[in-house]
Design a protein around this nucleic acid. Structure first.
Length: 297
DNA sequence: GGCCAGGACTATG
DNA sequence: CATAGTCATGGC
């Protein structure tokens, strides 16, 4: 095991990450302990369990433990952690712009220091997002666990088994029937496997999304079968870390806004889009804080 | 037991 | 283009 210290920008709320993990159907991927959170980082032979602990005497430091790792792995692990935990984001700019908005003020105050918990890469995010379409978060979490167990590299951690994110090749090799046996619907099995096959065959260039503006990237994603606006927005948000996406169709977001305003009836998608204009260019972050708030209700 | 769930596809006017 | 029906299952 290789252990090192990582300097953390302020504010950063470890508690918000824990809440997000518990609420977001990502719980299958994470190991939550009293003072630490950990998950598998990397794929295949590179897959390692990594655990971060907030230093008791210094909130601006995390202790990072890389199991079965060595000092040479440190830069790569740090790069992934910075991405997953959004450690390069400038929270003060978001707070300055949105902190006084009536719908957001409460959430920002309650979740001060919350940073976007992102997926490790766009492919894993796409799998995760498609699985989450239409079904409740608990069932989504279970389906993800099953798919990861089927196609991801297993890593033993203190007697428990955790799984690395499955690479496109592993998903592309599957048959639709294998996912149906895991209680995926036929259509969802097709969406996921066909997408992985397109990525493997070079028919869809996932890496190229990083160079496109939001609108163009959205259009490319929506050209894939099974990828609608909500899915594309979530992939830009959680897969690429874009700061200004609004998944206005999302029932969790609409629920949180409705509660924040004290409305009787759930706010409509157009009404939400209209209201969220004031949150530009931070609509992803506003959405995230409202999701945190909604999960705590 | 019925309605809903962090949607998207497809067929029909 | 707008709307309704379909997918299909678990959670509550």
């Amino acid at each position: 095991m290789h252990v090192y210290t990582l300097s953390i920008p302020q504010p950063t709320s470890m508690q918000a990450f824990r809440t997000r993990i518990a609420q977001s159907s990502q719980s299958a991927f994470w190991r939550l302990q009293d003072n630490a959170i950990g998950r598998i980082i990397g794929r295949g032979d590179e897959a390692r369990y990594v655990e971060v602990t907030q230093a008791a005497n210094d909130p601006a430091c995390w202790q990072v433990a890389v199991y079965a790792g060595n000092p040479a792995a440190e830069p790569a692990v740090t790069a992934v952690l910075r991405r997953i935990f959004s450690l390069d984001a400038d929270l003060s700019a978001f707070y300055d712009h949105c902190g006084q908005h009536p719908v957001l003020a409460g959430a920002i105050s309650r979740w001060w220091g919350a940073r976007l918990l992102r997926d490790a890469d766009p492919f894993a995010c796409a799998l995760s997002t498609i699985i989450s379409q239409q079904i409740n978060l608990k069932f989504a979490s279970e389906l993800k666990r099953r798919l990861w167990a089927l196609a991801g590299t297993p890593v033993l951690v203190d007697g428990g088994t955790y799984y690395a994110d499955p690479p496109p090749e592993a998903i592309a090799r599957l048959d639709y029937e294998e996912l149906q046996e895991l209680q995926f619907t036929r259509r969802k099995a097709e969406y996921i496997i066909d997408f992985a096959r397109a990525v493997v065959a070079g028919g869809f260039d996932l890496a190229a999304l990083a160079n496109l503006d939001d609108e163009t990237a959205m259009a490319q994603l929506c050209s894939l079968r099974g990828f609608g606006p909500w899915t594309a927005e979530c992939i830009l948000l959680f897969g690429l870390g874009r700061p200004d996406l609004l998944p206005a169709k999302d029932v969790g977001l609409r629920r949180a806004v409705t509660a924040s305003l004290g409305l009787e009836e759930r706010i409509s998608e157009p009404e939400l889009r209209d209201m969220a204009e004031a949150w530009r260019p931070w609509r992803s972050w506003a959405t995230y804080y409202l999701w945190l708030d909604g999960g705590a209700m």
